[in-house]
Simulated scan of single mutants.
Amino acid sequence: MKKVKYKMGKLGKYDFMKKYKMMRIFLPDTRKATLSNIKIMLRLYGSVYLKPDEGTGGHGIYRITRGKNSLILRTGSNSRIFSSLNDLYTPIQSILNRDNYIVQEGIELLKHNNRPFDIRVMVQKNRKGTLDVTGIIGRQAKRNKVVTNFHSGGTPLPIDTLLQSHLRGESRKKYIQIIEKLGKDASTVLGENYRSKRAFGVDIAIDNKMKLWVLEINTRPDMSIFNTLKNKTMYNRILRYSKNKG
């Protein structure tokens, strides 16, 4: 079995995964956070996220949105308005360089009760060493926050609840199966470089046209979010798999 040669941050994982045609259409444009890359991507997409290449838990994330004659920089629930990208870049440049940031295409997340949400799909190896989807959960952003992460105040909710206002009955059920398959496919691809890992946490976004995006894949996913649900079936299954009893 081929050994893992190196550990990848968000940019490395993105570069690795986009080599696979089956994954390319699900990956938001992601580049190193240089002034020129931020400028190009704001022109292309209107909004971008700045994220630490190796950060977790939603900390240190910025969102830049292009206004009519201004740029809005948001972090946490704070907003600042700048007249030019140079003015905006100056106060954050040292942070971007120090923590090795990436810039990612801004996805307009689907909303439930006027608050955006994304999805975490837990994928784990069973006793035979093949991958199974063991959990799926929604994470709804705290009001006025730019991130959905549980440890940054996001609310964990059943995915069925979050999709109720967008899809009915059978189509909702089928759509959840498509999300689960994408989580498993993404883990299978990244697993080619992380052969020894037994669990992957795949963060998936749905935009307002119902298109799916793979935002990030965690190779050390936090299981505690699943314990917040009233129904403990998924959490118990995840625990069982983590002890190699799945």
Rank of each mutant, 00 (worst) to 15 (best):
M8H: 07
V103H: 03
M8S: 08
N227P: 05
L88P: 05
S47D: 14
M223E: 14
K125G: 04
L85K: 04
K211Y: 13
M122G: 00
S70G: 01
K184T: 07
L239A: 06
K2G: 12
R172M: 11
L11R: 09
M223F: 15
N100I: 10
Q124G: 04
S165K: 02
R172E: 12
R66C: 09
Q177S: 12
R143S: 08
P91W: 09
R237K: 15
Y14S: 06
Y62L: 05
G183S: 09
K51H: 05
A186W: 02
K243Q: 15
Q164H: 06
D87C: 07
A33L: 03
K211C: 09
N218M: 11
S70I: 00
R168N: 12
I25T: 11
T34Q: 01
L109D: 11
V146S: 00
H151R: 07
V121W: 12
V121Q: 12
Q164E: 07
L73Y: 02
K197Y: 13
R240C: 14
T233D: 14
L190M: 08
T65R: 13
P91R: 09
L11Q: 09
R172W: 09
I217G: 01
M122T: 00
V202S: 06
N97I: 06
M223K: 15
A141P: 01
I159Y: 01
R143K: 13
T148D: 07
F226V: 10
G9L: 08
D87P: 02
L131Q: 10
G55D: 10
L162A: 08
R127H: 13
M234P: 04
D99V: 01
G12H: 02
N144A: 12
R220N: 14
G129L: 10
H151K: 06
P221C: 05
N231E: 10
M122C: 04
V202D: 01
Y62N: 01
G46F: 08
N97A: 11
Q93C: 12
K5C: 11
T75M: 10
V147W: 00
N244M: 13
K18G: 04
L110D: 05
P91Q: 09
L215H: 00
I238T: 00
N78E: 15
R31L: 15
F26S: 06
G9W: 01
L239N: 09
L131F: 14
D87Y: 05
L182Y: 05
L239I: 14
L212N: 09
Y14K: 07
D185Q: 13
Y14A: 05
T75D: 00
T228C: 06
P221G: 02
T228M: 09
G106P: 14
G57I: 09
Y235G: 01
M1R: 15
R139A: 03
D132Y: 08
V103K: 07
F82C: 02
A33D: 01
S47M: 15
Q140G: 02
L27P: 06
G201I: 02
N37A: 14
F82K: 03
G106D: 09
F226C: 05
P116E: 06
R172N: 11
D87V: 05
G138P: 02
I64Y: 03
G106F: 08
F200G: 03
R139N: 03
